[in-house]
Design a protein around this nucleic acid. Sequence first.
DNA 1: GACTTGGTGTTGCATTGTGCAACATTGGAT
DNA 2: ATCCAATGTTGCACAATGCAACACCAAGTC
Lengths: 142, 142
Amino acid sequence: MPDRSALVTSVQGELTTLTRRGTARARNSHPALSVVDQSLLGFIESNQGCRAIDIADHFHLNRSTVSRQLRSLADARLISMAPDPGSTRGQPIVLTQRGVEVQAEAAAEVLDALTGRLVGWTDEEVAAFADILRRYNAEPAA
Amino acid sequence: MPDRSALVTSVQGELTTLTRRGTARARNSHPALSVVDQSLLGFIESNQGCRAIDIADHFHLNRSTVSRQLRSLADARLISMAPDPGSTRGQPIVLTQRGVEVQAEAAAEVLDALTGRLVGWTDEEVAAFADILRRYNAEPAA
DNA sequence: GACTTGGTGTTGCATTGTGCAACATTGGAT
DNA sequence: ATCCAATGTTGCACAATGCAACACCAAGTC
């Protein structure tokens, strides 16, 4: 039976490599659409009408950071913060038509790269990878 | 049979969440030892005598970035850049005694947090997670 | 021996992403 | 009517990062 802490250490090392490389890859991708922007657009796409604080909670970011990123996306006409007709708390955020297009384009690029990287994986393996990542992400932050 | 691109998209989404959160978690950890610093120390520990460019290659960072991070670690007496007695290229880097201690301490903290997060996982599941991450990291960058 | 060349590290400069703290706003509850 | 909690914004500072130019040095080449 392998030592538990050795197992966890091994996970930790791989996570570090993955995370560090992931942020590094960020800069060189889509011109005029940083990885941060992409992640926000992707989240908004999947959660139309979400508020800034939902984004902050999901990515564990400060409200101020999200506020500024959203401002820049709004300036670029990729999202719009409707003046809340339903009058709930906060400002529900939606993708504009242009936002939908740009997001789709950027996502396609990322998808291409990832598809190439996973070319040797069977469907079952990819599915297992997605499942285990999903489970990890769903764990309450320790 | 599920659509391949749907599977890959799902992986992509989870990877984004994981990566973005990972960098976010970075800031609040060990005082006076950023996650970037921790990752460098960890790499050096596992690759004693490596050179700056090895680190840059591993994490896909610019030489200048590594140079500056190493400088700060050296200033803190955590690493030392020996003046190459063997006279190979570059400056082999090693952890100092203090570096070993600080690295162990920081690693223990991270390990604790991760252990807590994986508390509901069996050893086999943790091992499978490590394996699949290792495989993904080993794939040539597409 | 002098000259070039390629690999390695450093520095100046600009930029992005980020947090914190203070403030502003506004919808609800008492 | 008043207070409170949630939400968003802004001023400020800072860490990490890339690029380009430079410095340095070992190893060949003539």
